[in-house]
Design a protein around this nucleic acid. Structure first.
Length: 632
RNA sequence: GCUCUUGUAGCUCAGAGGUAGAGCACUUCCUUGGUAAGGAAGAGGUCAUGGGUUCAAUUCCCAUCAAGAGCUCCA
């Protein structure tokens, strides 16, 4: 048993007023958490409960317990829950004094069915968190008493439509210094029908998982021999990425960007100047050391810790795999003299960066260790900042609109005043934050402001989307930066013939190609619009006799740049169609005797089904138009 | 990084202390077909890797690597 001496602070605590505003569904789910806790307490009397709130799709209860709960235990727990529901116990609220509550907790009576030798450790801690002026209440259902501010539904009988979903571990109060508890997740609905609907939705969501679809459609592969979190783009995935990059490229030309290329590594000094090294070295791949320095160290019998020290203090040199593209772009800007007439300078690159994410954070394409940003840095004069941010936001909007991604939220990431991880003058931060806020208001979309979400060099606007399991991912981002220009001593010559420091804007409408494509796979469930589809047309001859004509059709489509192929398998059309459907090919062209005679083709669309027949050229024009307009 | 779970054929998964199985995919043959699966035969695996227990380990134990869920983190 782990002794809890110091519990980390609970940062956010619902006030009683906020609790009263709990929706009916949240109330039901929170009550169901108590039902589940009653059941678990019946099965394992040593269970010590911590905290059991409703969450987005259900509820959980954190519990410390000798027995390791596994999915095999779920039916057992559900059976007990059923008994509690059937007993239709009343949820009784009882107000009591702090001293009385503490006495109950010390006798182990909170979060349990009876008094016991061990005190209710977590309840004691939670009690201590309750402000002096707040009332203290316990809720009782049957013999199960729990410290709880409520509110609850009337009776346990209301919690009929429930299901235990999963079990995982969680740190008490989310702090890694606290003990780890078992977090049992469940869900509860008003009735069985709604519950079943929800479970079906979950099944559907699983089918959209980009890791699943990425494998089925041969889009990407992660290989142990290459490394965790390093994406190998398969030919099909590469097509999608290339199409997206072409699309962005067109927008960049339109908005007056200049394309550059930079290497994947840079000297440690570069990152000392930028502030990446050694400050953020935990989240970077370790430095690459020059051969001579390495040999010298070996001769000296240098220990690993010493090596690290010498890298940090600069007595030996090395390279870093770049964690960001900005230092390289800054050096490009600095390599030339700039007049105010040149500004803004907009440098763009699909730049690949490497970051050492914790192994437990890696996730398919959405959280990786090497990724390519559709990055750009805008160097501008102070009074151009507003307009340039607006241009960046417009770009993000064009991108998301074109792809039909409307389900995102906009977040302004501000610095956390209490933290010291940020570089630069607070006055600059204030100006940058104000500029972003103003730009966000011009977006005409609701946005939230969140402290502590800023980059270390400046505040940002993020576009955040959810994946199939409800996890949020930051995609496009626009960041204002007064600090790196200062650190690097950037300047342009103003109309007064004096040097001035420019302001930098970092921006990436997709964020990273990997994450964006991952989210896109789930967004389209693998059914990409024709312009993105790796396979746009598959020609299905009804028998070998029509192969020649099929090849003619293929050739005509290919000369127009359409991705088409002929299915030469010795199978019946039914089977060929099935395979093409599973491969999510946009169009299937069925070719048999009728088509060969009339020099036509029969069209079947992936979603719309049989679309009759037409001339090859008519179809070609139609699909080319569909691709060029990037229609959904 | 932490906790738990998992790792068997290209894919999805069965399986048992006595050196392995199914379906799909693949190859070949038969079949030449009209909008989501025609038939037959064949080929395929050092059961993640390294230790340990045992007469015997792919199976039990430990470690490592990797994956999944959750937590913590994410410049």
């Amino acid at each position: 048993m782990i002794e809890i001496t110091i519990m980390a602070e609970n940062t956010e605590r619902k006030t009683l007023k906020e609790r009263e505003q709990m929706s009916d569904l949240e109330r039901l789910r929170h009550s169901c958490a108590h039902v589940m806790a009653s059941a678990i307490a019946r099965l394992w009397p040593d269970a010590e409960f911590a905290y059991g709130p409703p969450v987005e799709n259900g509820f959980y209860y954190d519990v410390d317990l000798k027995h390791r709960i596994t999915p095999e235990d779920f039916p057992k727990i559900e059976k007990e829950m059923k008994a509690v529901v059937k007993a239709n116990q009343t949820f009784e609220k009882e107000l009591l004094s702090r001293a009385d509550a503490m006495a109950l907790a010390k006798s182990g009576r909170l979060g349990s069915l009876a008094e016991r030798d061990t005190p209710s450790r977590f309840k004691i801690d939670l009690l201590n968190d309750i402000p002096e002026d707040e009332e203290i209440s316990i809720y009782k259902n049957g013999d199960f008493w729990d410290l709880c501010a409520g509110p609850h539904v009337g009776r346990t009988g209301n919690c009929k439509a429930h299901k235990i979903m999963s079990v995982a571990s969680a740190f008490y109060k989310g702090d890694a210094d606290n003990p780890q508890l078992q977090r049992v997740y469940g869900t509860c609905f008003k009735n069985r029908t709604l519950l079943d609907e929800h479970l079906e939705q979950l099944e559907e969501a699983k089918k959209r998982d980009h890791r699943r679809i990425g494998k089925d459609l041969k889009l990407f592969h992660i290989d142990e021999a290459v490394g965790q979190g390093l994406i190998l783009w398969l030919p099909n995935g590469a097509i999608i990425r290339q199409e997206l990059q072409n699309f962005i490229g067109e927008q960049l030309n339109r908005q007056g960007y200049q394309q550059v290329f930079t290497p994947h590594i840079g000297k440690l000094d570069l990152y000392r100047t930028s502030g990446h090294f050694p400050f953020y070295s935990d989240s970077q791949f370790p430095p690459v050391i020059e051969r001579d320095a390495l040999n010298q160290l070996a001769d000296e019998g240098c220990a690993c810790g010493e090596l690290s020290n010498r890298l940090n203090d600069g007595t030996i040199d090395g390279f870093l795999l770049k964690p960001m593209n900005c230092p390289h772009h800054i050096k490009i800007f600095q390599s030339q003299h700039h007049s105010y007439r040149d500004m803004p300078v907009r440098l763009a690159e699909f730049g690949t960066v490497y970051r050492w994410e914790q192994s437990g954070e890696l996730n398919g394409m959405t959280r990786v260790r090497g990724f390519t940003q559709d990055d750009a840095h805008l160097f501008c004069i102070e009074d151009q900042v507003q307009e340039e941010i607006a241009g960046c936001l417009e770009l993000v909007k064009i991108v998301l609109d074109t792809l039909g991604m409307n389900d995102y939220r906009v977040r302004i990431g501000l610095r956390d005043p209490a933290s010291d991880k940020y570089v630069g003058d607070p006055a600059n931060w204030d100006r940058a934050e104000a500029a972003l806020r103003q730009a966000a208001e011009g977006l005409g979309r609701p946005f939230t402001e969140e402290q502590g979400e800023a980059a270390f060099y400046g505040p940002k606007i993020d576009f955040v989307v959810k994946d199939v399991i409800g996890r949020e991912w930051q995609l496009g981002t626009v960041q204002v930066d007064y600090n790196l220009p200062e650190r690097f001593g950037l300047s342009y010559i103003g109309s007064d013939n004096k040097p001035h420091t420019p302001v930098m804007i970092h921006r990436a409408p997709f964020g990273s190609m990997e994450r964006f494509v991952g989210v896109l796979i789930e967004h389209f469930a693998g059914k990409f619009p024709t312009w993105l589809a790796p396979e746009q047309v598959r020609i299905l001859p009804i028998s070998e006799k029509f192969l020649d004509y099929a090849c003619e059709v293929e050739a005509e489509l290919k000369t127009k740049g359409v991705r088409a192929s002929v299915d030469r398998n010795n199978e019946k059309v039914g089977a060929k169609i099935r395979l093409a459907q599973l491969a999510k090919v946009s169009y299937m062209l069925v070719i048999g005797e009728r088509e060969q005679e009339s020099k036509q083709i029969s069209i079947r669309h992936r979603d719309r089904g049989d679309e009759g027949s037409m001339d090859v050229s008519t179809f070609t024009n139609r699909i080319v138009e569909e691709i060029q307009s990037r229609s959904l």
